[in-house]
Write a protein that binds this DNA or RNA. Sequence first.
DNA 1: GGATTAACCAACTATTTCAGTCAAGTATTC
DNA 2: GAATACTTGACTGAAATAGTTGGTTAATCC
Lengths: 165, 165
Amino acid sequence: MKLTTKGRYAVTAMLDLALHGGEGPVSLADISARQEISLSYLEQLFSRLRRQKLVISIRGPGGGYRLSRPAADLYIAEVVDAVSESLDTTRCGNKGDCQNGEKCLTHHLWSDLSDQIHQFLSEISLGDLMRKHEIRQVADRQNRLQSDNGSETINTERLSDQAPA
Amino acid sequence: MKLTTKGRYAVTAMLDLALHGGEGPVSLADISARQEISLSYLEQLFSRLRRQKLVISIRGPGGGYRLSRPAADLYIAEVVDAVSESLDTTRCGNKGDCQNGEKCLTHHLWSDLSDQIHQFLSEISLGDLMRKHEIRQVADRQNRLQSDNGSETINTERLSDQAPA
DNA sequence: GGATTAACCAACTATTTCAGTCAAGTATTC
DNA sequence: GAATACTTGACTGAAATAGTTGGTTAATCC
């Protein structure tokens, strides 16, 4: 498991797809415009997302991409994995033949940690984020309408509130 | 929050420090030899760890580094943060003046996700890892002594077992 | 059928980060 | 004062990240 901006781009794009995919395919050009990610970079990312069967492509005019499954069944970990192609964390190839066992232990500790984060992201779906997003969008709009003074109430409840058990 | 090999090196080194720091300061040369991390790279990492006050340096012969606090009070998130200098996740500088609010929302979602991982790593201390390490070391030794046939029982229980609530 | 749309693909470039090296310090102890 | 070991900064090669260019292929619209 590796967490970099690349994964963030992928999750953002997938979320955009989930949010705007209600009325047919979404083109990368649209996502690029909305999320300000370069089109060519999106192509690279979606090439992987497609090969991992997270999205379905529709060619030709009016074409674009669709989620391969309902957003509630698409998990963040899948998206991150699809684009970052998790590297070997052990250096010794996980063969267990490290020098007198000592080195490999710390390696395994890190690998366990990494597994836990993976597990964690496997329990959050795009649907979960969407719901939060919608709530938030509504909340923000309400805030903007209600209080146009400079009070700046960014009081949207945190994602942490519905953290997976 | 960014998770790369850099953070792994730092955690590994700090864990080594925690494990061998019982009888006085530990030199980077020792850590370098045990963990097979280049001395110069360790110097870079410890320069940051020291500035973040996670370790204390003792100069001169017999010198080295010590943890600034008991291992049970030093959390993984601190170590990772110290060396990876978490980059801006929002691009817009978190000012909230993104284009019609839309872009920033997805950014915030990711930032929340990142916060949760951070939170998660903030609940695991070096002490926790040490305990696991010791248990493991004993278990491995037992395995090695008991079954010297090729059965290869890598049945050490996972870190997940004592995941923080 | 031809123009348009948009996915697909490959090679190439610039920038940044990672990982490591080198060299010249400074403080401490023996 | 010599040895030890931390401290700092500049520098390097390799890899990953981010973006570009220039095409090809499939589907649709006119």
